[in-house]
Design a protein around this nucleic acid. Sequence first.
DNA 1: ACCTGAACACCGTTCAAGT
DNA 2: ACCTGAACACCGTTCAAGT
Lengths: 187, 187
Amino acid sequence: MRNTLADVVAAALRVLDAQGLENCSMRRVAAELQVQPSALYHHVPDKQSLLALMADEIVAGVLPGPAPGAERGGGGRARDICLALRAAMLGIRDGADVVATAAAFRLGASAVEQALAALVGADGARTLLLYTFGHAQSTQTHRQAAAFGALVGAATADPAPGSELEASFGRGLDIILAGLRAGGSGA
Amino acid sequence: MRNTLADVVAAALRVLDAQGLENCSMRRVAAELQVQPSALYHHVPDKQSLLALMADEIVAGVLPGPAPGAERGGGGRARDICLALRAAMLGIRDGADVVATAAAFRLGASAVEQALAALVGADGARTLLLYTFGHAQSTQTHRQAAAFGALVGAATADPAPGSELEASFGRGLDIILAGLRAGGSGA
DNA sequence: ACCTGAACACCGTTCAAGT
DNA sequence: ACCTGAACACCGTTCAAGT
């Protein structure tokens, strides 16, 4: 039973979640499939392409998201999309890094950005996306640092860093959405 | 004349600008200094620490920045800081990646974030910073893609992508600042 | 179509030893 | 204090060859 492209992507995501991005090498993905490293190049031209496919998989399912409540404006819907995107990225180890890096290569092309642009305009969509990527990345970095600190046995000053970061994300989102309502772009 | 830590950081920044982050290896930095790779470990514990020092160097000089115009509010001053930070990161190849990665590790600790927080509050500062990092990163990625396209000889659809991205950055900044004026955080 | 086996040109980091 | 030389355990990618 030879492998398919979907098998390769799934194996790569398993390695990513288990070992982290830094250890997610072509060689380890190949080992996960019990195959020689060179076999991967039959399915994928290079590592960067594999990472892009992994990013697509991580983000898949963010849209259509919760049914659009008819009584809410585009801002509320945009807020839901950003929360769902964040949850999807945080759902897998180093997911934010993978998505942010791959997305940067083709900002403007993703379905998520187009959905946001339809709701709040192109500038608003870009601002919301970049903020969401950045905040998720820094959340994940802090988590890793916290996990490392716990391993080392360092005293953890923050009793509930997760919920504070969660709340911080929502407040930043509200700042941007308020700016959009106020016509911050000068429009 | 043996090398000092400052020599190592300077050499690393030269390699970064000339070869890009992907080729900025410890071995190449050592070669730039005409020294064995192992010699670097006398000055720096590991590559990550070297990258952090490089990030500090790139951002150094963003503050104090232009003298605070007394007649302008904190928003205008915050806007200047973000523009200066962006310019500093774009001033060196892959500078945005280096700074964003290193800064993520200690968000809340940087002088730039503290200066912004004093002007627009902690949530506003974080929102502005994450947006600035993210936008600079995607600007640099697009530049690389454009440079690669030019090398390959692909038709470039956008005649002046630089200025459009520049303007786009300013508009996003204005959205966030308008949100802060509107009290977007619910305050 | 999918994979093996072997190779090429690299990595980061450690460590004993030199001056 | 700063560096050399050699080694260890890895990388991504290519390519001829097998089935």
